[in-house]
């Protein structure tokens, strides 16, 4: 067995133990499946209902990814603009503080009134929730370059673009990636909330449906898939972070600015 396979096994072991315990407890206690289905039952249901689960998963994934990408792009661009323009900073800073405090989840019903029942309101909810960690942390990151580094660049007559690409952007990356991972997880939450509130598709919708019909095994199956989507996103971004920071990092990790 290779070292990395050993590592995976070590990480999976507690999870497997928990599932085994769960299986045993459900079987021995005889608890009704609509209250708590056993893991094997959930797995069976997942395989049986894959034709139902997959289209819903695809629908959720669409709003998650679209909203996430929109949040990352707009959050990053606005962060660059704000960190370079004092006027924009004065204009946006109070606004950002207020909007950050607004519970974005509570805006979901409003977005549904404004944008109907299609994919658009879900994407907007996802985008709104994922936007702020990107914006705030990127601003902090872009401003974190030490003044003596900037002076060194100015002493050799570097222009603003050079200072941005050679100093500010690489300095911001250790702040940017944790925000990216956080935004990805918030995107999944955003999509579920949007689908809970009003939707005829998506894993969130399916969970509500399964809940009403007391098909708890189907609810768990959907939950497993949502979690899988979140884990996959988080893992992919973690990999991207490690690859980029290997090139641009300084070996230290940054504290995420809390929301």
């Amino acid at each position: 067995m290779t070292a990395s396979a050993l590592g995976v096994a070590r990480n999976a072991l507690p999870l497997l133990a928990l599932l085994a315990l769960w299986e045993v407890v459900v079987r021995l206690s005889g608890v009704a499946p609509y209250i708590l289905p056993a893991p094997l039952q959930v797995a069976e249901r997942m395989v049986d209902s894959l034709d139902i689960l997959l289209p819903h998963a695809l629908y959720s994934l669409t709003s998650i990814l679209t909203g996430f990408v929109a949040a990352v792009v707009s959050g990053f661009v606005l962060a660059v603009m704000i960190s370079y323009s004092r006027i924009l900073q004065r204009l946006f800073e109070p606004l950002i503080v207020v909007l950050q405090v607004v519970p974005k989840v509570a805006l979901a019903p409003l977005f549904l009134i404004w944008f109907g029942h299609g994919l658009a309101p879900k994407i907007i909810i996802v985008g709104t929730i994922a936007f702020f960690p990107i914006l705030v942390n990127t601003i902090v990151g872009l401003k974190s370059a030490e003044s003596d580094v900037i002076e060194l660049m100015e002493s050799v007559a570097a222009n603003k673009a050079q200072i941005f690409w050679k100093i500010r952007l690489p300095t911001a990356l250790p702040f940017f990636f944790p925000a990216l991972k956080m935004a990805a997880l918030l995107s999944v939450i955003g999509a579920m909330v949007g689908e809970f509130v009003a939707s005829d598709r998506g894993l969130g919708h399916l969970m509500i449906l399964a809940n009403v019909n007391l098909e708890t095994d189907l609810l768990f199956a959907a939950l497993v898939i949502v979690t899988g989507i979140g884990l996959a996103l988080y893992g992919a971004l973690g990999w991207l972070e490690r690859s980029v920071l290997l090139r641009f990092g300084d070996g230290s990790s940054r504290q995420l600015v809390p929301l």
Binding site: E151, V156, K166, P170, R247, D250
Partner: peptide
């Protein structure tokens, strides 16, 4: 002007040679 400060002001993600090359890149 060639400045040398009290702190070495290195870019941590650049090797020694790439730090020396920074002004040349700027120019």
């Amino acid at each position: 002007f060639g400045f040398v400060f009290q702190q070495s002001v290195m870019l941590p993600w650049r090797t020694a040679i790439d730090n020396v090359m920074l002004p040349s890149e700027v120019m």
